[in-house]
Design a protein around this nucleic acid. Sequence first.
DNA 1: TATGAATGAGTGTTCATTCAT
DNA 2: TATGAATGAACACTCATTCAT
Lengths: 215, 215, 215, 215
Amino acid sequence: MSPAAPDRRSQRLGHILACAARVFREKGYDGASVRDISRASGVSLSSLYYYCESKQKLLYLIAVGSFRTILERLESRLRGLEHPVEKLRMLVFNHLEYFLLHPDEMKVLVREEEALRGRYRKEVAEVKRQYFARTVQIFEELAHLTPLRETDARVAVLALFGMMNWTCTWYRPGRDPGPQELADRFVAIFLQGVLRDPAAAGLQPELEEVGAGDR
Amino acid sequence: MSPAAPDRRSQRLGHILACAARVFREKGYDGASVRDISRASGVSLSSLYYYCESKQKLLYLIAVGSFRTILERLESRLRGLEHPVEKLRMLVFNHLEYFLLHPDEMKVLVREEEALRGRYRKEVAEVKRQYFARTVQIFEELAHLTPLRETDARVAVLALFGMMNWTCTWYRPGRDPGPQELADRFVAIFLQGVLRDPAAAGLQPELEEVGAGDR
Amino acid sequence: MSPAAPDRRSQRLGHILACAARVFREKGYDGASVRDISRASGVSLSSLYYYCESKQKLLYLIAVGSFRTILERLESRLRGLEHPVEKLRMLVFNHLEYFLLHPDEMKVLVREEEALRGRYRKEVAEVKRQYFARTVQIFEELAHLTPLRETDARVAVLALFGMMNWTCTWYRPGRDPGPQELADRFVAIFLQGVLRDPAAAGLQPELEEVGAGDR
Amino acid sequence: MSPAAPDRRSQRLGHILACAARVFREKGYDGASVRDISRASGVSLSSLYYYCESKQKLLYLIAVGSFRTILERLESRLRGLEHPVEKLRMLVFNHLEYFLLHPDEMKVLVREEEALRGRYRKEVAEVKRQYFARTVQIFEELAHLTPLRETDARVAVLALFGMMNWTCTWYRPGRDPGPQELADRFVAIFLQGVLRDPAAAGLQPELEEVGAGDR
DNA sequence: TATGAATGAGTGTTCATTCAT
DNA sequence: TATGAATGAACACTCATTCAT
């Protein structure tokens, strides 16, 4: 009725979702009870249901909200960038920045993929698919620009996602590098590997490699 | 008395653990009930407790057993290898082979790190720590042999583990490459990156990099 | 909001506690199941837990409530009494009256001393200790007033408690005397014994005893 | 077959019963599991059932055995005693001596009266009844000899049993008097009360009491 | 908008007991 | 004489959710 009403409502829901994310991170989706979330948020059990109809939907809203935010920021930041390498760098930075700023949501996104059921699951999977597809697209722009060692985009991109997503199991703020530096390191490994001089390490030189591509 | 007696028992426990791993993979540790495991294994609820005293211990035995197996096979396979690159390749192959052959255990190992409590948790963490330390050791042998782009062993090794462990979320046998090929690809990315010609992609040439290594 | 609300809750809890006391008396604490109490009270199992968080706490509330009531009534009834003999009589009456009016709680108090654990146990033990100390105090007032045969207050008071508490194993309303008469009899035995003429029964005469008191 | 066989058997059963008594004392009948008894006795669960067919029977054997022993010793010790006061003293000593020497059995006897069911319950109740009747008989011999203040034998004897049985809740060897002294004190209280000079305490003199008996 | 009260189904675990060997 | 293996029933307790107010 009053124009402030819907804001109040979504603010309160936002608070609940943030607390739910924390609880889900601490105990896992199945290990967390709605009562835990009620306690953590200071919202009574029944009020909680007034704002969100089920535990599943809490997880759904957290997941979908996070992925949408990541995707939107990515598209906005990608605007104006031309070189696929720069785009890739931006994607990794965008991903890690969100993860390191929202460690609760990050862990939930990464771990609770299969906790969602039915319609919720499909919708989240669809947003994820879009995000993955966007990454593959950038990878293939790169492939068109310069020859790649790894030509299976699926495997390559999933390796990159592995590096990024696994951070949620080990990253410790303060000890580990910030999002920009971490992104640079991951991109460097992904594009050029850890060796400065592969030949010196006994690996085939670049040119032979290219030649070997003939077989 | 009969020589088969102890075998019977451990065989039966082995069967239960295999079923438990499958159920844990399907539903997650917290989402799975001991009754689910009882049903899946065909062992009555109370008999199940005759073989294993708690749900926690089921998870513990799965985790510790898997890590021990991986570590033992690794050490045995490492014997005779000299070059750090070969050692690394073997480590990645050993890891992926176990994971692809035991997808249930793999997923449990990767996801349920924090489901264990108390003594069980500590013991599993210790075996993991050993495994991680072994990998860092190989990485540093490599660093002594040839200059590396990434000098932070922790970040580099965790990036590699990210690639490997993330497979449990996407790997589909039949569609995706087998353990040997996948290992080769991951090692190639890790050591040399996906680019065949970094300079052509606008990245700094090798030699300057090498020069930078003088500081 | 409505003034009746908190009353409703405590009334319902009171009903549950009364039923729990009956069930505990009939089956013992360990022999009784929470389902038995649920059935006996007509309160569903989960509602029961809504009112009281654990079986232990049910017992605790019964025990602490009873002891507090007994103690409060005792102090109120003791006010105005001067002579230790009258005080003792009142204590025994107060004790037996409560027991005979609340036979379920009585039996639980007497039998389930050790069923409680941790904090609950300590708190109940503390109230009991106070009650015992109060009785010893009255006994010692008596000892100051007139020479006693039994000078070990601990043993004497415990003998008296034995008489009183043991009633819970044999008392049958209707057949046995009411609280006032029973109290009189116990006090008479405790103070003067069952013999009217100890000398005639071959026991040492009072006067020699009194003389013996000189040593 | 061999003559020693039955002895072995009953020795082993005796060991089991002693351990069972200890476990029942520590945890209560319902709180104790047959596994607890198996562990405490070092006898495997199935062997335990070979020696005694049920948990109920364990309790039954403990109870019946104890009561029989107490009764037999009592009769043997009573032989030769003439004066009812001496008989009473012997009964109380006999009772306390057994209790203090067998604290486990004592506590079980006192607390687990109602844990037994059916035939077992009846049989134990019968032995108890005999024991009670024997005490009443002695009490009435005393009543014939000398006038008593308390003429209701039931209440008087139950008061005495209360003193004796309640010891199981407070007696601490070392701190509290041994069986003979404790028996003397209890008998003194029971026969003559704690007061040396009831008149001085404001209680009616003996003779008036006797006179009052006329009404 | 908010919440106290309520519940049926389910949780991990233990029980006394039996049976094949 | 002895015991490993097995089980159905029960245990105390928690769950996500609903509903009347």
